[in-house]
């Protein structure tokens, strides 16, 4: 009977409360869905929040075109099973329309370009609240993010002028043109998300589990060599390794980790014992120490 006895249950209760506030306070909310474990967790929480009714808002995927194929397959199946509405907007379209320019070179990625596509989609559908799966433990600048984070007409985050958030009262009042980014799993750690996936028996894409993959090494990180999305020098040797991914963002900037964890139980154990933080495997945060904060100011998730 008691849903409040354990840490993970209290996080779940908090997230459900936040998601319900979004549905109650906004006209046109949307759940930003990447196909990653954090957004899959959000969908699960939203299902629980509105049962026995359906989730009262659509999902939206900003497709970089650099997705792991397993993720897209998974996404389409999930949406079908739950009878949800899915909106997809493509970074490739923004490139074709000349709104953004593709990066080139060794470290090129479409992670930055997503921002333009996202902001255009928000304007197109007049979304006033975008639910995202960001967590405060991911990165230092994220640690200061609010649960309801107001963005201006340009999607920008003014980190020095954030609304104070007191108790659990969420102030969603905004002006026309503004929108709010909502982070229901702000207070979860990576381990919490994995523990929840295990506890709830939530299905996730196969690339999160250990599998054999053609890979190459660069800067001490392991990269997939199976697709031509990741730029590879001729002298970077391709070797089959047993790996899994800890995040499934843009393939071009998501590195793999060596792993034998083929099921959720062993993944949770590995994470518990692990000594590399999750974003350590994402190259775009390493570009500069203030990378995340700069991207956030520009309207990134």
């Amino acid at each position: 009977m008691n849903k409040d006895t354990s840490h993970i249950n209290s996080l779940e209760n908090e997230a459900i409360y936040i998601i319900r506030e979004v549905a109650a306070q906004f006209e046109r909310p949307v759940l930003l869905f990447s196909g990653g474990k954090d957004s899959i967790t959000l969908v699960r929480l939203a299902v629980k929040a509105f049962y026995p009714a359906k989730i009262p808002f659509p999902l939206m995927h900003i497709d970089t075109g650099h997705n792991f194929p397993e993720t897209i397959e998974f996404r389409d199946r999930l949406v079908k099973e739950l009878g949800l509405e899915l909106i997809v907007r493509h970074v490739q379209d923004s490139i074709d329309e000349g709104k953004v320019k593709e990066e080139s070179g060794k470290y090129s990625s479409r992670n930055q370009l997503q921002t333009t596509t996202l902001l255009d989609a928000i304007e197109e559908f007049k979304f006033d609240a975008c639910i995202g799966g960001a967590r405060r433990d991911e990165e230092k600048a994220r640690a200061k993010e609010r649960i309801f984070s107001v963005r201006d007409d340009f999607g920008q985050w003014d980190e020095k002028n954030q609304r104070p958030e007191l108790f659990d009262m969420l102030n969603g009042q905004i002006e026309l043109g503004q929108n709010v980014r909502v982070f229901p799993i702000s207070n979860w750690t990576e381990l919490d998300v994995w523990s929840y996936i295990e506890k709830e028996n939530i299905e996730i894409p196969s690339i999160y589990f250990a599998h054999t993959r053609a890979t190459f090494l660069r800067d001490g990180l392991i990269w997939s060599a199976e697709d031509d999305v990741v730029y590879r020098e001729d002298d970077e040797e391709v070797v089959d390794r047993m790996v899994r991914f800890r995040t499934v963002g843009d393939m071009s900037c998501t590195a793999a980790v060596l792993s034998d964890a083929t099921d959720i139980k062993t993944v949770v154990r590995e994470i518990r014992e692990s000594s590399i933080s999750e974003r350590g495997a994402r190259i775009d945060d390493k570009r500069s120490e203030a990378a995340m904060e700069k991207r956030k100011q520009q309207g990134y998730f």
């Binding site: 209290s10 209760n13 319900r20 026995p52």
Partner: peptide, 12 residues
């Protein structure tokens, strides 16, 4: 989809 006899403090 579960039914409870009692809802405790801070549960949603």
């Amino acid at each position: 989809d579960e039914k409870y006899e009692t809802a405790s403090r801070r549960s949603s």
